[in-house]
Amino acid sequence: MKKYIAKRLLTAIPVLLMISIAAFIMINLAPGDPTNLYVMPDATPEQMEATRRALGLDQSYPVQYMRWLTRALRGDLGISYSTRYPVLPILVSRIGPTVALMGTTLLVSYIIAIPLGIISARKQGTWVDTLLTGGAFIGVSIPNFFLGLGLIYIFAVQLKWFPTGGMLELGGNASILSVLHHLVLPVAVLSTFYIANMTRYVRSTMIDVYGENYIRTATAKGLTKQVILTRHGIRNALIPIITIIGTDLPRLVGGAIVTEQIFQWPGLGRLTILAINQREYPMLMAITLLSAVVVLLVNLLVDMMYAVVDPRIKYD
């Protein structure tokens, strides 16, 4: 197992390199020039050139990339053009809020969706199932910006139950209760999709599992429905469900770009939008790389989870 993990981590290195090259190319292919943001509107071409040189943007792309890479390997991800602060601490400060937002969302979603999916599957074809699959269909279809604005209008503007956005109150009250209060609406918006999505997957997985011969064997043994569900059904359904969780988890840091924007959530999603708008090339590189690292780690984690859940899978 240790050998397997080491191998996977080693293969991650070239993957990350390729991702950084691809990200670098795409960022530089995008229109716009960061220097425009750092000079006065009436700056002369000479002043523009001087700024560009100061930012290191006058060099050829390969040189720029190599310069970025050698610094990144030493842990220096560059500085933010607009704030002149190093990128790394800014990035780190945004991870907490996003993990709080997405972590709560995924937790809430799975706690709700897995039982719903199981109920839907066991009641397949009944009105309960129709209601749940119909609800799930609406849930995956409704756009977050629309739902977000709708919830803000109803629960924040009209009913005034929840704040319209942000994570902390003015004055910086950072008590857990206050943060939770701020979390309700964005989590509601985000989890709508995850609940709907997961319900659908759990339902179809459970229907598949209940069609398997070993469930028939379990029934023929005279086990109760409860035992069949917990010891034979869910355990086997977990394998495909872990795959779905694996695709959800990287979003913990990828963040919810639209929803964070709507709710003014100080997380990585909003930082991404900000970085794109301000042509913060080093910041964008750092965000992309962080996402890539998380995706690779989660994939490894998921593959290891398979081995835990499914005795047929062994890594030696």
Partner: peptide, 21 residues
């Protein structure tokens, strides 16, 4: 009654056992 008084053996031994138990 099932499994206690009346038990069954099925055709497909390859798929009739729970793979995770």
């Amino acid at each position: 009654v099932r499994g206690n008084d009346i038990a069954m053996i099925f055709q497909d031994p390859m798929t009739s056992l729970n793979p995770t138990m």
